[in-house]
Design a protein around this nucleic acid. Sequence first.
DNA 1: CATAATTCTGATAGCTACTGTCAAATGACA
DNA 2: TGTCATTTGACAGTAGCTATCAGAATTATG
Lengths: 196, 196
Amino acid sequence: MNRPGLRERKKIETLHRLQEEALRLFDEQGYDETTIEQIAAAAGVSPSTFYRYFPVKEDVVVQDEFDPLIVNVFESQQEGTAPLEALRAVLAALFAEFTEEDIERVRRRVRMIFAVPALRARQVGQSDATERLLAEMVAERSGRSPDELEVRHFTALVVASWTVAISAWAETEGSKDDLAANLDKCLAHLEAGAPL
Amino acid sequence: MNRPGLRERKKIETLHRLQEEALRLFDEQGYDETTIEQIAAAAGVSPSTFYRYFPVKEDVVVQDEFDPLIVNVFESQQEGTAPLEALRAVLAALFAEFTEEDIERVRRRVRMIFAVPALRARQVGQSDATERLLAEMVAERSGRSPDELEVRHFTALVVASWTVAISAWAETEGSKDDLAANLDKCLAHLEAGAPL
DNA sequence: CATAATTCTGATAGCTACTGTCAAATGACA
DNA sequence: TGTCATTTGACAGTAGCTATCAGAATTATG
């Protein structure tokens, strides 16, 4: 049996404490003006420990664990669905489970990411990784190669839609449903060939 | 008459020397393994001078001056054209003027940008700026606001198409025309609603 | 329960990117 | 040639990040 254990619980606790204190300090004094020493002190650990949890400063805001979840949801879908529809459903299902509190956390983080260039820059690394992941999943299903131009292009477009939808949503006070609505609007607009 | 003058000529010269030596050193020893001191020494200037030309290390590869050119070409177009068609024409016209040598330089830079995460991250800052620029231009013409979801989404999609087209092209040994062909393929695919 | 093995933490030293300041050098111009 | 404006180099300092290592805390074992 793999019970949680004291060690693991403590780790998760420090992780969250670091993220929360960091977010608070960034809000209060700005990102660049906040040093890792301050964050570590606020969370009651040493700077060394901070770096063990987050390889770079940006990750204390940007890091998330959605990629494996996306894969799970996608794979548990029936084969027939069209790629675009499938991805829409995946994303919808993903944040359907979030509590109101989760959503507020996401909003704070997204706002900060798009407000601080360094964070946005770091986040693109994650987006690129997710994009490659989607490409592989989509390619596998449609019996194509993930390196094909059309496949890469498709996934890049979907990620772009998602990025616009969530950044526009974060600027508002909208609910979870508003985010879903934004995403639907964008994907529909994409499916229509992005007319203007 | 605004003749170049020795001072200005020297400045452009040092700028190019810094870029070239940097590119060479990055190729030879890798990006992270190359220090600014080395680049400066290779170009025969002090590290202080490097920072005067490039605020951050990444910019010695990433920095370009295409944005103002894009605006110029776009504004000198007739009003009637549809936004997507207009942007396609702008980009085509932009690199139509490049010499073979220019193109090779671009290819080297693009390859390096997509190979080194730090460079890719920095480049996104530029892309975001270009995206906002496009949004303003497109919005102005179509009498909309650049903050509208559809407008933002449209420009994000176009930038994504462009990114895929150029990164796929850079991986090959293709000519200037191949880049144009890639871009046409992507934009056509977008216009068709990104079917898979 | 005591001891051994494993994992986590904190302290230290060091490298490099980057900033700010100031005096010296260099080109522009009368 | 002499004066003014701009560019440059030297120096000092901050902060992000890496590597290393001894000691503390947790877990596994006899």
